[in-house]
Write a protein that binds this DNA or RNA. Structure first.
Length: 276
DNA sequence: ATGGTCGCCCGGCGA
């Protein structure tokens, strides 16, 4: 089973790029981020004609996630639990960033969590270094904590599951061409990395690092200043596998070639194959 | 790398 994640940066602008990549890569399942579309305007028929089931969780102009699957899906849920836990009532109803579904494989099923973690910039801190209540950075860390709680609940089931998507998080210095440029950024600063490490400590396997030791491997390059041409990138799109899913892992790759095509997203797809 | 570029959808925000 081939499962992919792709931050497409707008479905309307990425129809050709996404269609071409689906035809070439032939994933069974794809979680999409930044569809930037309401559900009613998502071109679902186009992807249904390509053999995919389409489940969206969109909003107007920003964010928005979706799942495309050639395999049957069960128990689709939208949004993380505990929206009130954000400190802003119903915050998760405003920002569409999370979708879950169970993918039915030939022999076993896998729970797939597709996510678009908040960017978190600008970083606004109190004099004591804590995030200012209600700031973008505060929102990121609170969302991270809720994601960890959801992961903890899924881990307790001891079943194959994975969390995939745009985590807006650079795990370590080797995951950026120029780590020093990101030290104070919400994608890399210590509190952000601590939240990621805490999540990983539940028992996840980083699929990319489990299958390759290649240096300078990235999933995002800024549109500006020829960043891709200089491979001035960061690794922020991740596949985190539960122990039961990691036991089935056979490959993980980043489709860097899509970034060199016409009208690319600023992210590229990442995928795993699971013997499941 | 609080933007030199994009995408949203129509002036400015978000990344």
């Amino acid at each position: 089973m081939k499962i992919a994640s792709f931050n497409i940066n707008g479905i309307k602008a990425r129809m050709d790029a996404l269609t071409d990549w689906l035809t070439e890569a032939e994933p069974d399942v794809v979680v999409l981020q930044e569809i930037k579309s309401v559900d009613e305007n998502f071109p679902r028929e186009h992807f249904e004609d390509m053999g995919y089931i389409v489940e969206t969780h969109g909003q107007k102009s920003f964010n928005g996630v979706a799942i495309l699957s050639k395999l049957p899906l069960e128990d689709i849920t939208r949004g993380l639990p505990d929206a009130a836990g954000m400190g802003r009532e119903g915050a998760d109803d405003i920002e569409a960033r999370y979708i879950e579904a169970t993918v039915m494989g030939a022999r076993n099923s896998v729970r797939v969590c597709g996510l678009y973690l908040p960017n978190g910039n600008p970083v606004d801190l109190n004099p004591d270094g804590t995030p200012i209540e209600g700031s973008k950075y505060d929102f990121k860390l609170k969302w991270f904590a809720r994601l960890e709680e959801r992961a903890r609940a899924l881990m307790a089931l001891e079943q194959p599951f994975l969390m995939a998507g745009d985590f807006n998080l650079i795990p370590q210095a080797e995951d950026a061409k120029r780590p020093d440029a990101w030290r104070e950024d919400a994608l890399f600063r210590p509190q952000s990395r601590a939240a990621f490490r805490s999540l990983m400590a539940l028992g996840f396997t980083d699929a990319l690092r489990a299958t390759t030791s290649a240096p300078e491997v990235y999933t995002f390059w800024d549109y500006q200043a020829g960043a891709f041409d200089r491979n001035d990138g960061i690794r922020i799109d991740h596949f985190l596998l539960s122990p039961q899913a990691a036991d089935c892992l056979t490959d993980c790759q980043i489709d860097v070639f899509t970034r060199a095509k016409t009208k690319p997203s600023d992210h590229v797809p990442i995928w795993v194959t699971l013997d499941i």
